[in-house]
Structures are given as structure tokens and as C-alpha cells.
Amino acid sequence: MTSQNAGWRQGAACVAALTFDVDAESPVLAEGRRYADHAMVMTHQAFGPLVGVPRILQMLKDVAQPATFFIPGLTAERYPAMVEQVIDSGHEIAHHSYTHRTPTSMTPSEERADFERALKVLDRFGITPVGHRAALWEASWQTPSLVAEYGLKYDSSLMDFDTPYRLETPAGTIAELPPHWSLDDWEQYAFLPNPRLGEVIQSPLTVADMWIHEIDAMRRHGAMFMLTCHPFLSGRAGRLEALRTVIETAMERGDVTFATCKAIAEATLRDPDLEARKLEPVSVPADLYPLE
């Protein structure tokens, strides 16, 4: 374990963040407004806030661990009682866009408007978020600057490290808490025939085994276990029990600390041994990689 990481880890071998993206209908609607007419698809997504979130909150209470819920503004407006449940349970609520449209699919002004609209919705619940996650993690080069400009402390969208770091933007310095697809339940469980947002239904036992292996590897390498789950997926009974097994196994290791993204970001920004980084946008000649 390197001394460089000792500060933000606060003495733990691995820091684990349990995060839940309560997307509900928003990622499907981002594929096309016509899907609002598909009752199966809409109810499939509604399982998350209606059933998945209450189950997850009870499980987190059972294991006595904190979590961060990234909630799109549209979801918060449609399911205010669910938002209140998360607030009453004492977990962190963070910014996850308004529409769940990806920043890379919008103009800079559209991304800003969507970002601001989400902030206004959360403010109605008395929530001042300190963190942000881009829809589908598809941040634009502008996204980190927006996070800093609006006073948030961290982003969780980029994938160039498996440890947190300080990120310098034109609008200020924030913490970046990198996720990865291997620690996302969408890649394990998501299945919808139309729109085709996923084509796999993995065994929860296989997924639990994979994630426990990742935790043990990260304990050796001093990394951050940034787990991303979706209540419409991991809120299903068998999958939730697999997630419980992952958490309880990590707790039994004795050297894994669970923390909210807010707490990890604060420790990252305080760590004097972490060098601040800047994003380097990729620019290539048009004749080398022409637009398709």
C-alpha cells in the first residue's frame, strides 16, 4: 500500500462506496419519448422507486452502512415519497441530471440547462447536492467545470483511475471518484427487448463472486470499490441478497471501510499527497478519424 493513498483511505486497505442510481423511467425515455406508451417498459422501470428503493434502504439499515443515491430530477418529481424515504434514512442524495440524457448528446447550453433544472428539483426537497454523476457516465469535457461552477465538490463519471483524485477545472478544483462498468449491475442484469438497453440476465451468485473478488484485489492494491447499482435491477429479491452477501463479506475482511461519496470526496480534497490533475481533451485530425 502506498503512502500516496493512505490519506484518503484513512487507514483502510480499501474504501467501498455503495451507490444507487434511481433512474426509473428516465433512461428509457432518453431513448425516445414514444416509450412512454409502453406499459411493460414503464412499469419495469417503476419497480425501482416503488419496490427496489424501500428494500435497499432496509438492507442498508440491516448492515448499518451508508450509501449515496444519485437521483435524476425527473425521478424525484415523479416519486417524491421515495426521495423523502432516502432523506429520512440518512443517506446522501446526489445530482444525476434531470432527464438522464447524456451530456455528449447535448449542446453545451443544453447540458447547462439540464444541470440547472436538476438542481432546482433537488432544492425543493431541501437538498443541496455536493456530488454529480453524468447519465451513463458519458461526461463531456465541459461537465467537470459545471460541477465546480455550481459549487459541488465531486464528480463520479470518469474512468482513468481506480482511486479518487483531485481534478482541476477552469471553475475550480473538485474530487473525481472514478466508476467502472465491471462494478455496475446494469452490465450484469439489464434486459429489455425494446429499447435494447441490455441483453443479459446473470446469476446473482456469479455477480456476488465477481464483486467479492474485486474487493479482495482492491484491498491488495489500495483502490476504491465504487459499486453502482440500480434499484430496478438490484432491488429484485435474489439480486438484493447477493448484494447483501458482498457487503457482509467485505465487512468480515476487517480492513474495508464503507463511506458515502461525499465523505470520500472530502477526504480526497484534504489529502495533501494527492496531486491535482487536469483533463486533456483528445484532438485528432479529421482525415485520420473522420466522423461517421
Rank of each mutant, 00 (worst) to 15 (best):
P164Y: 07
T169W: 05
S89E: 06
I174M: 03
L136F: 14
H132Y: 15
D185A: 11
T128V: 15
S97P: 00
S157Q: 05
A139N: 12
E84C: 05
P144I: 04
T163G: 08
S182D: 15
L167C: 09
M106I: 05
F125V: 06
E149K: 02
A134M: 06
G90D: 10
P108E: 08
E116A: 04
E110A: 11
H100P: 03
Y154N: 07
R166E: 00
F115R: 02
A171S: 14
L177Q: 01
Y154V: 15
G131R: 02
Y79P: 00
M159I: 10
H95Y: 07
S105H: 03
G90A: 12
P179S: 14
G151A: 08
K120L: 10
L119D: 09
H91F: 09
K153Y: 05
V83L: 05
H91E: 09
G126Q: 14
W137K: 07
D114Y: 00
Y79E: 02
M82T: 14
E176R: 04
P170N: 06
D114S: 02
H96D: 01
E116Y: 03
L152W: 01
E111P: 08
D155A: 13
M159Q: 13
G151F: 08
T169I: 11
A113P: 00
A135S: 14
P108R: 02
A190K: 04
V147E: 02
G151H: 02
H95Q: 12
T143G: 05
D88N: 14
P178C: 14
G126K: 13
Y165I: 13
G131I: 07
Y154Q: 08
A81C: 05
T128S: 12
G131H: 01
Y79W: 14
P129M: 13
P193Y: 07
L74H: 10
P129E: 12
P164N: 09
W186S: 10
E84G: 06
H132A: 15
T173E: 12
L146E: 03
S157F: 07
V121P: 00
R112T: 04
F115D: 01
P108I: 05
L152G: 00
H91S: 02
I127H: 09
H95V: 09
N194C: 10
P108N: 07
Y189S: 08
F161I: 06
E92G: 05
F161V: 13
P164C: 10
L192H: 08
N194F: 07
T75I: 08
R78M: 09
A171I: 08
L74V: 08
A118S: 15
S156W: 02
W181G: 11
W141M: 10
Y165Q: 07
A175M: 04
D123T: 12
W137H: 12
A171Y: 01
G172N: 06
L136H: 14
D155I: 05
A113I: 02
P170G: 03
S105Q: 07
E110G: 09
A118F: 01
L167I: 14
R112Q: 12
A148R: 06
G151E: 04
I87Q: 15
T75E: 10
A76I: 02
I174R: 01
F161Y: 15
L136M: 14
D155G: 11
T128G: 04
M82I: 05
P170W: 11
R124L: 11
F125K: 12
L192G: 09
P80K: 05
S157M: 10
T102Y: 08
L152Q: 03
V147N: 04
S89L: 12
D88F: 00
S145L: 00
V83T: 07
P144W: 06
A113Q: 03
A139K: 01
S182M: 15
T163Q: 13
Y189N: 06
